[in-house]
Design a protein around this nucleic acid. Structure first.
Length: 436
DNA sequence: TCTGGGGTCCTAGGACCC
DNA sequence: TCTGGGGTCCTAGGACCC
């Protein structure tokens, strides 16, 4: 981790434009210049929109079925999400960024923070450096990005927003390239809700107090903000004023909980089918658990009916199951989860969703031993079995080897009616190029 | 008919301890 | 009539992020 004490930091935020839509466009140029929407699991709602789709007023999270008319009139393309593709494209983009500096924090699937103050001499200006990043990512991956540059993460975020919204900056904006008075005027035109850390609720409260723009918030005293809001907001205001409070976290800390849950393609009533679905989610969660080298000490199972429906009875419940011995063995976890499911299952409801959360995560191999620990020999067998399982599934694709409890009919799997191929991760689905 | 999934952090309040 | 003060741990709920 690059500490803030090591000289004055400078951050760049590199953010992919309309990331999921851009990934689709890389492999299907016919999608260029058309309104494209990528849908959530189950083809439920819009989670990524091309600029053309945004221009039609399609909002983030808008249910797809409500867009039916708009779709008909404007020839909107709605694609099921293809996370395998997006995950792979993301890794490629991040790899290109690491070619510029090792000081990269992958903040989400489509954005990274970079510490750039040591790169200054390689380009005439930071803006030129930003343009170089943009050009290389575009050329090597096909993905368009914007770059925002500022002395704190919050300001880099804001600069990125400015780069995105103002075409005259050509996708790169360095806050330092503006004189203070110019910057004040610019920030006085941006809604306070655009600040990183200011969500819908806090924006409402701020506006109620007469704070409408980023500039208004920037002029507040952090102490006063703390008194009326929280330490988090205090930090945000300090960062807006150029005082860095957040460091670059280039080494991802292990996750504290792992969740796997999904809505069903069709409603599920029986315990058997719920068990199948839950087993498959637990399998996925356990894979993630082993990937980060952890074991879990407890898991939580939950079920719920469709809360959007007004007819029919509603039911939702959850239960935490402590494990006698911390484990990352899929079979142990499935067994515990099914035990929990049995306890909260009620007959007579139509379920929409179930899921599992792995809790009390700890590094494997350094947990408190219990009186009833399995024999060392057994533990070794368990580890060996899991590495075979993971190895086969990595090599031959997910679910090549899975627990029988996850079933074979799988009526409950989510809808994905318009999904593109895994162009970059499956031999059988490689894109084909033809010469004329 | 159709409404995502996966995370983090902070705060308040209760239980309990000395 | 007067009814301490400080600390920890846990949980639930709320807010935020992508």
């Amino acid at each position: 981790m690059l500490s803030l004490e090591q000289g004055k930091p400078l951050f760049a935020l590199v953010d992919c434009n309309n990331f999921y839509c851009s990934c689709e466009r890389v492999f299907n140029p016919k999608l260029e210049n058309r309104p494209v929407v990528v849908l959530s699991n189950n083809d439920g709602c819009a989670i990524a929109r091309s600029n053309e789709a945004k221009a039609l007023g399609i909002r983030m999270g808008e249910p797809w079925f409500k867009l039916r008319d708009l779709v008909k009139h404007h020839g909107i393309v709605g694609l099921s999400s293809n996370y395998t593709l997006y995950g792979d494209m993301s890794q490629r983009v991040m790899q290109v960024l690491r070619g510029f500096t090792p000081d990269v924090e992958v903040y989400s699937i489509d954005e990274s923070f970079l510490r750039i103050e040591r790169m200054r001499r390689l380009w005439p200006s930071y803006t030129d450096m930003g343009q170089a990043i943009r050009a290389r990512v575009r050329q090597w991956t096909g993905i368009p990005v914007c770059v925002g540059i500022g002395p704190t993460k919050t300001l880099a975020k804001l600069a990125n927003h400015i780069a995105k919204k103002n075409p005259q900056f050509d996708g790169v904006f360095d806050l330092a390239s503006y004189r203070p008075a110019q910057l004040d005027a610019l920030l006085a035109k941006i809604d306070v809700g655009e600040v990183w850390g200011v969500g819908r609720r806090i924006a409402e409260r701020l506006k109620h107090a007469g704070i409408h723009t980023v500039q208004d918030l920037r002029l507040m005293s952090p102490k006063v903000v703390r008194a009326h809001f929280s330490v988090v907001m205090e930090r945000t205001v300090s960062e807006l004023q150029g005082v860095p409070c957040l460091e670059l976290e280039d080494i991802a800390p292990p996750k504290k909980q792992i969740v796997s849950s999904k809505s069903f393609g069709e409603m599920v009533a029986s315990l058997e089918e719920l068990s199948e679905a839950l087993s498959s989610y637990v399998t996925r969660a356990a894979e993630k658990l082993r990937e980060q080298g952890s074991v879990c000490g407890a898991l939580q199972v939950f079920v719920m009916t469709n809360q959007f429906r007004t007819d029919g009875a509603q039911y939702s419940n959850g239960i935490v199951i402590p494990l006698p011995n911390p484990s990352n063995n899929t079979l142990d976890l499935v067994q515990a989860a099914l035990f929990g499911l049995k306890a909260i299952y009620r007959r007579g409801y139509l379920y929409k969703k179930t899921g599992v959360m792995l809790l009390d995560l700890a590094p494997a191999g350094q947990t408190q031993a219990s009186l009833f620990d399995p024999l060392e020999e057994q533990a070794k067998h368990s580890d060996a079995l899991m590495s075979v399982l993971d190895g086969l599934n990595r090599k031959f694709g997910r679910d090549t080897l899975c627990v029988a409890a996850s079933g074979t009919t799988r009526r409950w799997v989510a809808k994905a009616e318009n999904k593109t191929p895994c162009y970059t991760t499956r031999w059988g689905e490689l894109p084909k190029a033809f010469a004329r």
